[in-house]
Design a protein around this nucleic acid. Structure first.
Lengths: 135, 135
DNA sequence: CGGAATCCGATATGATACTG
DNA sequence: CAGTATCATATCGGATTCCG
C-alpha cells in the first residue's frame, strides 16, 4: 500500500475529494464573498449584502455557511440587540483569497480581450447562419 | 470625466462585464478542461471526454464552445473521415491556466484541511440539534 | 468520431414574506 | 439586524438518440 501520509488526489475523478472541493470552490458568490472579506477584513451580514449587488439573503447565508464549514471563515455573533454578526476570513481563507485575487485581477484586466473575442465569435457565428441577402 | 482608455470595472455589480466574466469563469468543467489542456497541450474531444470522468458530451461541448468564444482556446477541425477535432489553449488561455493551476494546486494541497474542517463543523452542528439523551 | 438535438428531472437560485 | 421559510422558476446537467 501507499506509505502513510501521502495521498494522491485526482481532480478529474468525480468521486475524488479534490473534485468535490473544486466543485465547491467554483462559485460566483463564494468568490465575491472571499474577495470582499479579503479586502475589508471583517464585515457584517448587511454590509456584505449591500456590497454584493443582487445577493438574496438566502444565497448569502448559504455561501457564508459553506465557507465557514470549509474552515475558510469565522462567524462571530455578538449577543446584543439588535443582533450583530461579523464575518472574517481564517488564515486558510486568507491564503485562498490571495490566490483568488491573482486570478480575478487577471480576469478583470482581460475583460476587454474576452469581450472582444466574444464579439468576434458571435459575428462569425451569425454570418454562418445569416442568409446571403434579404431573404 | 475619466480620461479615455481607463475603464473602471466593479465585479460586485451584477451588470458589470467583469461580473459576467467572473460568472462564466466559475465553473467546474471549465476548470477541468483548462487544466487538462494546460497539461497535455492539445487534445481531442474523445480524449477530454475520457479524462474528465462523468462529462456528458453536452457539457463538454458547451464548455469548449464557451472557452472558444472567450478566446481561451482554439478549435481545429481536420477534414478527414472519421472526423478529427483538436483543442488547444490560446496564449490567453495559457495565461489563465497558469493562474488556475496555482489556485487548484493549493486547493488540492488543502483538501485534508478542508475535509477536517467539514467534519468538525458537521459534528458540532449535529450536537447542537441532538437531544440531550434518549428522548 | 464529434458533435447536435431533444427530453427531462434534479437542483440551484431568486424573490418574497416572516421572525427572534 | 440577521437570518429562516416558502414558493416559483430557471438553469444545470445528464441520458439518449441521431446525423454528417
Amino acid at each position: 500500500m501507499e506509505s502513510k501520509g501521502f495521498i494522491s488526489y485526482d481532480m478529474f475523478r468525480r468521486t475524488c475529494p479534490s473534485h468535490t472541493v473544486l466543485e465547491a470552490l467554483s462559485n460566483k458568490w463564494l468568490y465575491l464573498v472571499v474577495m470582499a472579506l479579503g479586502r475589508r477584513g471583517r464585515m457584517r451580514f448587511s454590509e456584505l449584502q449591500k456590497l454584493l449587488e443582487g445577493v438574496s439573503p438566502k444565497m448569502l447565508t448559504q455561501t457564508l455557511r459553506g465557507l465557514e464549514r470549509d474552515g475558510m471563515l469565522q462567524r462571530e455573533v455578538f449577543p446584543v440587540v439588535p443582533p450583530r454578526v461579523e464575518y472574517e476570513l481564517t488564515p486558510l481563507g486568507r491564503e485562498f483569497a490571495r490566490l483568488l485575487v491573482h486570478m480575478l485581477d487577471w480576469s478583470v484586466a482581460h475583460v476587454p480581450d474576452i469581450l472582444a473575442a466574444r464579439a468576434l465569435y458571435d459575428v462569425a457565428a451569425g454570418d454562418a447562419v445569416t442568409p446571403p441577402a434579404g431573404s
